[in-house]
Amino acid sequence: METGWPNSFGSNFGLTDMSTISINGERLLSRIRRLGDVGRDEKGRLTRLAATDADRFGRDAFVAWARDAGLDVRVDRIGNLFAIWPGGDNRACAPVMIGSHIDTVVDAGMLDGCYGVLAGLEVIQTLNERGASLDRTIVVAAFTNEEGVRYAPDMMGSAVFAGTYPLRAALASKGPDGTTLGSELERIGYARNELSGFLKPCAYIELHIEQGPILEHEGVQIGAVDSLQGISWYRITIVGEANHAGTTPMTMRRDAGHAAARVIHFLNRLALEQSASRRHRR
């Protein structure tokens, strides 16, 4: 498997100046809005959980747009969608993959995940309409159950694709309504036979709305993310000593609440110091 970013997509563009190519912004925004309307409840909240009817309608819309753009759509066993634009002379080489997810949390924004999927589709469709021909295949991916609201864990489709989570366990994951992901994928028509990981990309790009305040705060339009935070959960028990509140001197007290407050203060100060250190290195 090739690693890293490919040296070139190939020179077979059929265009003299790639800098003159611009995507169809109105088409992209129109699709984002239309997909954002799929799964709205009576109060206008967007909720498109994995393998629900709303998810099926969202998938159907993406598949239709991809096929209209001339892409071949394939679905693997965990329900991940892959819209493929074949390359030219180097089509046997590992493809470049662009994508994200189209399932949502409860009361979601319409850009989270969907922006990355639909932007990738728009890039390919624009290049195709302009007569470009890349040597290397490009794939737009929409991963299943990335949010993990209905079935745990989250990032499930991409984890199965990457080989870090077993397919069988993912399909057997049971939701709070008693259904399994595998049975619901079959119900909505997105349980297919393509082996998970049948594509092995040389590089992956995901355009994503910023989920923090940094770019907006600093007036920057776009940033490149090269790492993500790791999350670990701990349960900490602080044991004090119960005693009479009125007669126990402060110097003899073992107050668990006070100890917990000091721990919280220390962790907050540590996080601030580390944040300032990283900012200084930039």
Rank of each mutant, 00 (worst) to 15 (best):
L28K: 04
G70H: 03
L71A: 04
H217P: 00
G240M: 02
Q211D: 11
T164K: 05
P201V: 11
S8M: 06
R282N: 15
N12G: 02
N24I: 00
V73N: 03
R34S: 12
R253D: 10
R168A: 05
V139Q: 02
T52K: 07
A83P: 00
R150L: 08
G223L: 08
M18A: 10
A50C: 10
A119G: 08
E147L: 10
D53Y: 08
G223A: 15
T104F: 04
R27H: 05
D177Q: 14
P86W: 09
E146H: 00
G219V: 04
G79I: 06
V123W: 12
I264E: 07
A169D: 15
S232K: 08
V96S: 10
L15Q: 12
G178H: 04
A276K: 12
F266Q: 10
G79E: 05
T3W: 13
K200E: 05
S173V: 01
I231E: 14
G70D: 01
L28H: 11
R136H: 07
M252C: 08
D255M: 15
N80T: 03
Q221D: 15
R269C: 12
A260R: 14
R31I: 02
I236P: 06
L171E: 03
W233I: 04
A64L: 02
T248S: 05
A169G: 12
I84K: 13
A132I: 07
R150A: 08
A271E: 00
R187L: 07
I32Y: 11
E186S: 13
S19V: 07
V140H: 02
R77C: 06
S8N: 13
T179V: 06
D177H: 15
T180N: 02
F198C: 10
G182E: 14
V75F: 03
I188P: 09
Q229H: 09
A141Y: 11
L134H: 11
G175I: 04
Y234Q: 09
R136P: 11
V225E: 06
R235Y: 06
P95S: 06
S100N: 05
A256N: 06
G88M: 01
T47V: 14
M110E: 15
A66H: 13
R187A: 09
H208I: 09
A132K: 08
R168F: 00
S158K: 12
R77P: 07
I102E: 11
A276I: 02
L181V: 08
V75A: 02
S277Y: 13
L167Q: 08
H217F: 05
L185E: 01
P166M: 00
D53M: 01
G219P: 01
A69I: 09
D135P: 12
A169M: 13
H265S: 07
H280F: 12
A142P: 03
H258Y: 04
D37E: 13
E210F: 04
C114T: 03
H217G: 02
F9C: 06
V38W: 02
R187I: 07
R150D: 09
R281I: 01
V140S: 01
E218C: 11
G14N: 14
S173F: 00
